[in-house]
Amino acid sequence: MREIQIEKALNKAVYGMGGLSLKFISPGFDGVPDRLVLLPDKKFAFIELKAPNKKMRPLQVKRKTQLEVLGFPVYCIDRMEQIGGILNEIRTT
């Protein structure tokens, strides 16, 4: 399983829920999460995608912490099985 396959499955699931899965790029500010997921009713989260059993780099962990300190939810997905649960968590919080 490759990261791109997980990313495609996430995008499909988000669009199926009526949401958007936007590629998040921040020039000059490396290490930001891969996707900004926007769901109906003002629900959102940042998502970092990884191949199975791969870990976030130290800079990515730092960015995750920075965003969480500001109150933004950040998730890391490295398995297809996580997608439904995480989207449900985003939708219900």
Score class of each variant (00 low, 15 high):
32 V>R: 08
39 L>F: 05
76 C>A: 13
76 C>P: 01
23 K>M: 11
27 P>N: 04
25 I>L: 11
44 F>I: 10
27 P>I: 03
69 V>E: 15
25 I>Q: 08
69 V>K: 15
46 F>C: 07
70 L>D: 08
71 G>E: 09
35 R>V: 02
72 F>Y: 15
69 V>L: 15
69 V>S: 07
90 I>L: 07
61 V>S: 08
77 I>D: 05
85 G>F: 01
21 S>W: 03
21 S>R: 14
80 M>A: 12
50 K>C: 02
22 L>K: 11
36 L>W: 01
69 V>T: 12
19 G>Q: 13
17 M>Y: 09
68 E>H: 02
44 F>C: 04
35 R>W: 01
91 R>V: 04
16 G>S: 09
59 L>V: 13
28 G>T: 02
40 P>H: 05
68 E>R: 13
71 G>C: 12
53 N>V: 02
54 K>I: 02
63 R>P: 00
63 R>Y: 02
88 N>K: 15
36 L>N: 01
68 E>P: 06
22 L>H: 04
41 D>G: 03
17 M>N: 12
47 I>Q: 00
47 I>D: 00
91 R>E: 13
19 G>C: 07
43 K>D: 10
60 Q>T: 00
92 T>A: 09
18 G>S: 05
53 N>D: 14
62 K>E: 12
52 P>K: 03
18 G>P: 14
90 I>E: 07
58 P>A: 00
92 T>P: 06
60 Q>S: 06
17 M>S: 12
82 Q>P: 11
27 P>M: 08
42 K>P: 03
53 N>W: 08
90 I>A: 01
53 N>A: 10
48 E>L: 03
61 V>H: 05
39 L>K: 12
37 V>E: 02
32 V>N: 13
